[in-house]
Design a protein around this nucleic acid. Structure first.
Lengths: 188, 188
DNA sequence: GGTGTCATGTAATATGTTACATGATTCT
DNA sequence: AGAATCATGTAACATATTACATGACACC
């Protein structure tokens, strides 16, 4: 059970705030998704197993105007599993950076293909510029007074700072990539 | 076949330099591994399929003092597959950042557990400091004169710059994380 | 004699992705 | 009337990880 993965992200998210599979999926699209991606199908499957293993307990909640949902809460056993995992060493990350492969691959493409890559990098850059703007807006909204945060909020905030730092670094790097690609275009 | 993955990283690597499965695995531990991780088991399996599909061709090379190896080269068909993929939009990255989950999870750990996390972050930071040093040494060694690089080398270099930028950003962020964790410790 | 590197793989299991499926309500 | 959102899942398939397996040679 070493190094297991989605389970722990779900445990953290449910400890911060109990919720349904659907709500979890939405959180994974937003906040948690900054450092752990998962689709609703994965989440439902893992939640089912976690419930069977007694890591979480579910309560049916009727809602008016909306379908019923099943609200999950972390059990004492689930909390123990999480703390056990927290004390394991951090696993090396599995990196998968599409764009970097494409940039190196551009060496084997023709000028038209490289021109298309420039457009694609521009599009990709715009996406991440928006993402950074959303992170910064979220920081302003959720952590307006940084000096008065409780422990959990401070930890959430420093993780958000990581997302912001990552996006800024990425934008700067994409500018370097664009300079390089445009430079190569002008030479040919 | 959209969005397929390891295949393309292998094609780029073999176009830069033909080689055996073992050599590819070593490259994935080093240079390519900065943006795409893969184990030798994965590589052998995918190479087999790529050979069956005619994307690469293999030549047996006898070596003295060493086991024979099978050297792979990208075929014309493989090159076409790669350029086809290069012209597809970049897929959103699947992020999986263990440490960020643990930092948020630390909110639900006891003081002893948080102290242990500080030690773990320190260890992790030292690992990445070494990695950055290796990248910088590699940059000096492989790109001593930046003004006189050919197209392929310039693209390789800008990708390496990305790795360097990432590691620097990570180290700065880890310092922020340490400040936050130590601050919480002193308050308790 | 033991450790490490070179070189190749198989098998079992776990995880992740994609497509499909349902049904109510709210908004335009 | 049609599209979007809320809410839950199953099934089939693809990919990744982990453990196991073999054998030669080089170096200490």
């Amino acid at each position: 059970m070493l190094g297991m993965a989605l389970e722990h992200a779900i445990l953290v998210s449910l400890l911060e705030q109990p919720g349904s599979g659907y709500e979890l999926a939405r959180r994974f699209e937003r906040s948690i998704g900054r450092f752990w991606t998962a689709t609703h199908q994965q989440i439902y499957r893992v939640l089912k197993r976690m419930e069977a293993d007694g890591w979480v307990t579910a309560v049916d909640v009727g809602q008016d105007g909306r379908p019923d949902k099943r609200d999950f809460t972390v059990s004492a056993a689930g909390r123990e599993v999480l703390t056990g995992w927290l004390h394991e060493p951090v696993q090396p990350e599995a990196v998968r950076h599409d764009l970097a492969v494409k940039v190196r691959g551009a060496a084997f493409d023709d000028p038209a293909g490289r021109a298309a890559l420039i457009d694609e990098v521009v599009r990709y850059r715009a996406e991440h510029e928006e993402l950074l703007a959303r992170y910064l807006a979220g920081e302003k909204r959720d952590f307006p007074d940084i000096s008065s945060l409780r422990a959990g909020e401070r930890l959430q905030h420093v993780v958000l700072r990581g997302g912001i730092a990552y996006e800024r670094m990425l934008l700067d790097w994409l500018d370097e990539v664009l300079i390089t690609l445009r430079h190569l275009r002008e030479e040919s």
